[in-house]
Structures are given as structure tokens and as C-alpha cells.
Design a protein around this nucleic acid. Sequence first.
DNA 1: CGACGCGTTGAATGTTGTCAAACCGAGTGG
DNA 2: CCACTCGGTTTGACAACATTCAACGCGTCG
Lengths: 248, 248
Amino acid sequence: MPHPIAMATSVSNPCPHRHGVSCGDCRMKALCLPLALELDQIEQLDRIVQRGRPFQRDEYIYRAGTEFRSVYAVRSGAVKTFAVNDQGVEQVTGFYLPGEIFGMDGIAHTHHISSAIALETSSVCEIPFNRLEELSLSLPNLQRHFFQLMSREIINDQRLVALIGKNSADERLATLLLSISSRNAQRSLSGLRFRLPMSRADIGNYLGLTVETVSRIFGRFQKQRLLKVDKKEIEILDLEGLQELANV
Amino acid sequence: MPHPIAMATSVSNPCPHRHGVSCGDCRMKALCLPLALELDQIEQLDRIVQRGRPFQRDEYIYRAGTEFRSVYAVRSGAVKTFAVNDQGVEQVTGFYLPGEIFGMDGIAHTHHISSAIALETSSVCEIPFNRLEELSLSLPNLQRHFFQLMSREIINDQRLVALIGKNSADERLATLLLSISSRNAQRSLSGLRFRLPMSRADIGNYLGLTVETVSRIFGRFQKQRLLKVDKKEIEILDLEGLQELANV
DNA sequence: CGACGCGTTGAATGTTGTCAAACCGAGTGG
DNA sequence: CCACTCGGTTTGACAACATTCAACGCGTCG
């Protein structure tokens, strides 16, 4: 049996959290920043990306108030971002799955105004922003792609505003479940059976609902045979029913 | 007395809607895109900016479904952006005042997914996006500034999510009024007396409330001597009271 | 074992939405 | 000049959905 360290970096052991993987070999390259780049450009990107050890559950990736240096990509695991206002009320601003970029709200200022923590053991690529800017000046593809990523973030937030402002609690939760489902499917995981990385409280916080309401809706969805729920394990039994609820 | 046409373009007549003004002479240059640029860089920007005739009230600046070509800056007047979902429900996504950039949600796709209309007679600078991209490659300042603008848009949307998801109707309206007030003050207009460019319905739509609720709150605020309301004319009588309500 | 975090369930309350009607000012046409 | 309409706004009565408060169950960890 090989030495454990050798195992961790060997190709034969596809540990999703191993941090030796370059962008060109990363299985998320079709979703992530490399998406828009040619092979040699990916190598250039690769040179500025920093890959540290995985983060444990509840570990901060960055904290509000600290200096903004980088944006981040999830390689494995799941991340939540949140802001805390003057009264200490937390607002969850997003959940990020492998291949997704987070931390773009920090670009506007010299210091982070929100925080990011790992919802489960997660590995994350750190992309120093000033180096990304430099590289973007010589790679129009990359500049464009990053503009588009930020634009997509704006669209997502606008959709969330609409969801919270106009839809019932049921519709909100159904929409979130379908979002996670389809994002899982994109990552060639099951869209019908998955584990929610976040707590009920996080879900409620994100959707503008209380924990109790979220819990009741999970119960109701189960009674209506839309879902099978076992703690954080979700099985979607009636996809079309959920979609109807979510108005899609 | 000079000829009226001569008046319209003369320096002595500061008609806010006249469209001959270059970025370097624009009174919004301290808030808008030129903010980050040197004099000669502003000239380069100026060369790509297109200034058409003013838009009348209710006129579209761009429509969902049409090809995305440009982002826009408000020079005078006010603009609202909104998206319409599959069921025909409108969601107001933003109100934009002079010096503010809108249309950045279009960057992610080849076609607009939202629309923008003038809330009152407004002049608007059109900034063709592919030319802005090109220019950004040679002007790092500009690239950075535009990244920051987009980041700020993300932050605004996140704040709106928090506002709608966590705050009462009173808090939401108070916050919007204070936002408009301070944005007016930034533009060296009165922060205590101003005209709302949008309807009650737009306000409600934006804040996730019904028209009736908005109307009742205006009444309540007036009764509490926080505001003096005459149709769209607003006078803030008790700024601190409003701020307290808005938790600032 | 007991404490704790997290999730669930129940009952009561309340804020906001819904529905309906009336108002008001501006513009239009007889 | 008046009556009329029309869009935007206001007001009232009522209903409903989600919150609040409280209690409890369950699994984990010290």
C-alpha cells in the first residue's frame, strides 16, 4: 500500500478535495473560469491560482472587514456567503457549489463587506484579484468572461429579489430545491437525490423565511409526495409537481 | 434675445437634457464612468459614448429580448429597469438617477433579459459594450472601475434582498426614501425635498409590497410627521426619525 | 448522563395581501 | 363649460399566510 501522502496526490485517488489539480485538469473547468479560455491561456490562469488545504466545516474563507485580495472558486464542497448588518442580523447572500465563483461583491471596496464559510469540507481556489485584472488586460476572453460572470451574479440576485418579493414560502423553497437540483445535475451528480449542504436556518435566512416555516414546508412537501426528506438528504419524487409550484 | 435654438446649445442655458455635452464637461463626471480616468483617458471614453435625443416618459431605452449592445448612463431624468417573467409578472429591478450606470445585467447574455424605460424625460449616454471592453484592455483604470461598478451593483442587489427578506414594510419604504434622499444630496440637489420619479406601483413592486400598503405607509409617515407628501413631492420633516425606522 | 445544537410541531398573533369602492386631477370631447 | 373617462392613488373591511413563542424530540459530544 502506498504512502498516504503519495496517495493524496496520485491520479489513481480521485479525492475531490485534493489541491494539486491544475485548472486544465480540474473537472470543473467546463463551468468555471477556464470555460472561456484556450489551452495556453488556461496555463496562464493556472499560474496565478492559489490552492490551499481544504477548509473544514464552518471555517471562514474570508471575513467581513478584512482586506479584499481575491475572488474564489469552489472546487469541492459548498460555501455560503453572508453579511451581518449593524444590528448583528445575518443575511445569507448565496450558496456556492463546485465550479462557481464567489467573493465578487468584494471588488467594489478595499475590504470585504461580507464573509464566506465552508458548509462542509471544501477545497477552494483563490484567485488574487489584481493578478486576475492584469491577466484580463492581455486576455480579452478572460476579461469578457469575468464581466459575464459578474453580470450573471447580478441576474441571480435580481431573481432572488423577485422570488422573495413576489412568491409564497412554498414557491421560494421549491425554487431553491430546483436550483440546487439542476446545479447538481450540471455537475453530473444526481439532480433527484442529493444532500443539502446547508441548515434549515440558512435556507430560511436566504429565502426570507423563518426556520419554522421552512421546516413546515418540508413536512408539507413530503405529505404531498413531492419529496422524501431525511434530515438533509433530499429525494425529489415529483419533479414536475415541484416545477409547477415554482412556476417553471 | 437669442434665438431659441441657439439658447438650447449655448453654455448659458444649462438644459439638463441637452445631448451635446462631452464626458469631460458633464456635471456627472465625478459620479459616473469618468470618475476613475485621467483627462486624456476621458477623451478616449468620450469618443465611444453615444448621446441621442432625450427619451420621453415611458419610452423604452432597451427591451427584453432585443440584442444586447450597450450599457447606459443616466445623464438627466430617471430610469427604471424591470424584468417580466413567464407569467407576465413584472419585477422592478432598479431605479437609476443621473450619473448611475444601468444595463449591466445584459452583459451575461447576447440578448437583454430585462427592459429599461424613462420614468420622466431623460437623457442617457449609450456606451457600446464591445468598444468599452476594447478600451478597458488599454485602460486598466477603466477596467478596474467597471469591475467595481458591477460589484457595487451586486452589493446593492444583496442589500435589497436583505431589505425585502428581513424588514417590515415601514422599514423598506423608509430605506428607499433615504436612499433617494442621499443620492439626490450627492448630486447637489436637496436631500430633504424632492420629487419621486416613480409611481406608487413601481415603489411597491420594487420593495415587494402592494400599492395599497405603500399608500398606507405614506399616510402613516405623514401622520407621524416624518414626511410631508403631496402626490410625488416629498419633504422629509424628521430625517432622524426616518433613519431610526430604517435602522441606520 | 446531561447539555447543546438542530429540527419539528402546535397554538395564537399580526402584518400584509386581497377585494371593493371611492377619490382626485388631467385630459378629452360634446 | 361641463360631463366624462381614465390612470393613479387612497381608504376600508376582511382573510390569510407567515411569524412568534413555546415546547418537545432527536442525535452528538463532552
